[in-house]
């Protein structure tokens, strides 16, 4: 099969970008979408043209590196998979496929289809952890966790941090990502001591990064390769409300040994 690609090309953040159209070489319908781009890039390189830069790594839908907005939908036409798990058999002979980078102010463009998603790391650094020093942990079975909570925490924890939620949301909101992090730890007994501090710090950093707000359209959930639920956003909203109501903790009195 052959398709036509309309690809966003941009040399770097500061130079203007534009769409460029390429006719693909002959493709096999069993190719993954990224393998199709590999093949196109090989043919570009053989013509001494600059290959299309795109992010990818594990190619099995778990590392969250691949991105791409394909015909207006992050991660392509299928529900519950990442771009790397999208196969050419999902397209028809002669289709024109529009490929764009994730668009969000908080994800500045690096080159062509590559964007910088470090904002997610910065949010994580504000509180996406349980403060436990190596070696200080009690026996794992000394903290029972109800199975349904553990399962729900896992539903949230399987977020791959790809940013498709941001890319899909008309407001470029990162709520699904942040809420997955907040809920994963907030659902476990181990995460309780820092629960409200965590949600406050992470949400505030999310705002700081310039992501939009949630208008409950559900686009994020629809494109999420792990189908993470909007329920978690509600959970985050609730935790944040409690955190606001509790206020900042009292500063401990100065002094010591």
């Amino acid at each position: 099969m052959k398709v036509q690609l309309k690809v966003w090309r941009q040399k770097n953040r500061n130079s203007p970008g534009k769409f460029v159209t390429y006719d693909s070489p002959d493709l096999n319908p069993n190719m993954s979408f990224l393998e199709m781009l590999d093949v196109v890039n090989e043919s570009l390189a053989s013509k001494s043209e600059d290959p299309i830069a795109f992010d990818h790594d594990c190619r099995e839908g778990i590392c969250g590196t691949c991105s791409l907005v394909i015909d207006g939908k992050p991660h392509g036409p299928h529900k519950g998979v990442a771009t790397c798990q999208t196969y050419m058999r999902s397209f028809k002979e002669g289709d024109q496929i529009v490929i764009e980078p994730f668009r969000a102010r908080a994800f500045p463009l690096v080159k062509d289809l590559v964007v910088d998603r470090k904002a997610f790391d910065r949010i994580q650094q504000k509180g996406g952890f349980i403060s436990v020093r190596t070696g200080s942990a009690p026996d794992a079975n000394s903290i029972p966790v109800p199975k349904e909570n553990a399962d729900l925490a896992m539903d949230a924890a399987q977020c791959i941090g790809c940013g498709a939620c941001v890319a899909a949301c008309k407001n470029a909101s990162a709520m699904l990502f942040v809420s997955a992090k907040v809920s994963h730890l907030g659902l476990l007994p181990q995460g309780q001591p820092e629960r409200h501090r965590r949600v406050k710090a992470m949400v505030d950093q999310m705002d700081e990064e310039g992501f939009g707000a949630c208008t409950v359209t559900g686009s994020c959930e629809a494109v999420c390769p792990k189908s993470i639920s909007l329920d978690f956003i509600a959970r985050m909203n609730r935790d944040y409300l409690v955190a606001l109501a509790k206020g900042d903790p009292k500063k401990p009195a100065a002094g010591g040994a």
């Binding site: 309309k6 966003w8 769409f19 907005v69 394909i70 015909d71 207006g72 939908k73 529009v98 490929i99 764009e100 668009r103 969000a104 102010r105 908080a106 899909a168 008309k170 407001n171 470029a172 909101s173 310039g210 992501f211 939009g212 707000a213 208008t215 409950v216 359209t217 559900g218 686009s219 959930e221 629809a222 494109v223």
Partner: peptide, 25 residues
């Protein structure tokens, strides 16, 4: 205003509704 600012460049590809209802959008 903040939401618009968060997405300075719009998509060119045919935007499907991606799970969002018309009311929501």
């Amino acid at each position: 205003v903040a939401n618009r600012a968060a997405r300075p460049t719009r998509y060119a590809g045919a935007i499907s509704s991606q799970g969002a209802t018309l009311a929501a959008r």
